[in-house]
Write a protein that binds this DNA or RNA. Structure first.
Lengths: 353, 353
DNA sequence: GCCGCGTTGTGTATCGATACACAGATAGAG
DNA sequence: CTCTATCTGTGTATCGATACACAACGCGGC
């Protein structure tokens, strides 16, 4: 049989045209440009469509002919369950979805599993553009995205070929936060994101040079290290605790462990408000005063950060998501852009001199 | 000009065939059935494709001819930002995405905004099937889904036309939890989800008959009321506190308010573990003992429920998500199914007689 | 009566890939 | 040496909708 499986046979625009006694183009216009047809013709078309159970133009046929799909692809760089677990991803995707809803376009999620089929899934995605979120430097999916020739934006890096990057200057921002967080500290700690897709839990010191595959993690770590070493301190005294997932509980567990250990941290700079809130809880459980015994900073200025009096880095992931979506839907002319950020000083850090 | 906008002109399979000196079908097979062509021919095709920058078969053309898109549509019944905010949605979608990843199909999210264009977005979605999550009884989008003729599943209701529903028997489950939660209680409270898309914060009593548009909310409320009235108590003594969003903080605020009021609740049955954890915090802040002063139950048996010693209803939204995805991708033969559930009794409720 | 203009309807080529049927080549069995 | 079976390559009709160009019609102005 020389026809694809469609179950059961779906009525076509041509059948509707025949049933309504009009030409196919009249039916087509009735759906895509209602003003183009008379009220009378439109009524005939609607009646015939209802009669036959015609659900509207076939999306694939329409896309083929029009050259657009009306869908934005978001490459997640992660298994989908992580993306939904991560509040930062949620804020970003909310921004993307705001724009999609406003423009009337759909949203296709393309989760990266690490398998070679990932590139194929990108190549076969029926979308008009891509937004790439949180992937690692060596991810071959970036090449697949570039190969499609569709407009695409990468959020917060990595840089690759001609793909523009939208985000903040993470290194400079981390350095600014670090200066506040580490003031008068002797045993500073960074509570950070995974270094690579393995998401291993690790503890490093600032004189080590780990292979950090996630650009966001790398830039922020470099920034925090800048703040510490530029103040004339020894890199080896700065530690990095890598939390496998961005959760309050994860930050609390790791922070609690270190606060009980030898040389407990007296300043904790976290890469997210969630991890920072975990650190605050760990400090409270340990009976430590914030900021006198231990200073804490977060990242993002989420609602909970203000409520907790947390010093943090304010940026709007939602706005960045919206910006990425507009850029990816907008067309081929784009350039890398840095968004604004600023440090919000609250009660969780020591007064500056 | 009689050609759709593609920017810049994308190379076609036919061009690759010409460049490689083979027929179009050989190129097509090289991509879709690699075993069908000789190693030699495959090499020629790969070389020509790289040369021309051919990213693989055009998704729309392939979909049109094959009659499948390799994508599953998830209708969210909510603005996307709510979906990402709701931990229950996250667990469900993780299950959906597990199956999609395993089957190599993409995932298109179709958020419902309440606008009339929602139905159009459903009709124009290039997908092979639909999973509908958390929509209200009167949602016209359900008709749009049914009209497409694609296989579709609704999670937890509402029932509509021939669409199968997958979920648990919420009413029976709520009744079972309610019996445990309300034992020896005199002023029981249900901490619940929104009644309709307006998400208004409200406080009702069991003798009122509010219009509850979300089936999950309705069924659980009915079940809790069953538990109370079947024990011979007055419906008017049971209250329902409607929380606009499913967050710990939301449950904490509302519970704290009522615990400070007249006739403070001595038993709180929540529709989610998140709201229940909020109630536990409110009780702790008010200096109340759990379960002696106030019993608390949750719903879902999330990780945090076990950690908090919370009596709860155990179900697996992740499994249900996976089941829905398999059903929606599987084909036309499906039936409504009830999943298993059971009550997990922990320390947050009074010992049963 | 004729011209110009806006509105509404139609015929057809085309978007790009693939299912199918068939042809030629090669190999192995008898 | 012939006959069947397997492997590999090809030509073409088709999936369903739409861009475009053109035709028919009504209407007002001069």
């Amino acid at each position: 049989m020389n026809r694809p499986a469609d179950n059961p046979r779906r009525p076509t625009l041509r059948q509707v045209a025949t049933a309504a006694g009009v030409s196919p183009m009249t039916v087509s216009y009735a759906y895509s440009q209602p003003g183009r047809v008379s009220a009378e013709a439109a009524a005939k078309v609607r009646a015939a469509a209802r009669e036959l159970g015609y659900p509207g133009p076939h999306p694939a046929a329409r896309s083929l002919r029009r050259g657009r799909t009306g869908t934005l692809g978001v490459v997640l760089g992660e298994r989908l369950s992580y993306a939904f677990d991560d509040p930062q991803a949620a804020r970003f995707l909310a921004g993307v979805s705001d724009v999609c809803a406003a423009e009337g376009v759909g949203l296709t999620l393309i989760p990266i599993t690490g398998a070679p089929s990932d590139a194929q899934r990108v190549a076969q995605a029926a979308v008009d553009g891509f937004v790439v979120w949180t992937t690692s430097d060596d991810d071959p999916v970036l090449d697949a995205v570039a190969d499609t020739g569709l407009s695409a934006v990468v959020h917060a890096g990595p840089h690759r070929r001609e793909l523009p990057v939208i985000g903040i200057d993470d290194r400079a921002a981390a350095a600014a936060v670090g200066r506040v967080a580490f003031a008068e500290a002797r045993h500073p700690l960074v509570l950070g994101f995974p270094l690579d897709r393995s998401r291993a839990r690790r503890l490093l010191t600032g004189d080590q040079e780990p292979a950090v595959r996630f650009p966001v993690t790398r830039h922020r770590w470099e920034g925090f290290r800048d703040a510490w070493t530029h103040a004339g301190r020894r890199a080896a005294d700065l530690r990095l605790a890598v939390c496998p997932v961005n959760h309050v509980a994860e930050g609390e567990t790791f922070a609690a462990e270190l606060l009980r250990g030898t040389d407990p941290p007296d300043a904790i700079a976290a890469m997210s408000d969630e991890l920072a809130l975990g650190a605050l809880r760990a400090a409270a459980s340990a009976g430590l005063r914030v900021p006198d015994d231990v200073a804490v900073t977060g990242w993002d200025d989420a609602d909970a950060a203000a409520a907790a009096g947390l010093t943090t880095l304010a940026q709007s992931l939602r706005e960045q998501g919206a910006h990425c979506a507009r850029a990816a839907l907008g067309g081929p002319t784009m350039a890398s852009t840095h968004h604004e950020w600023h440090v919000v000083v609250r009660a969780s850090t020591r007064r500056q001199p």
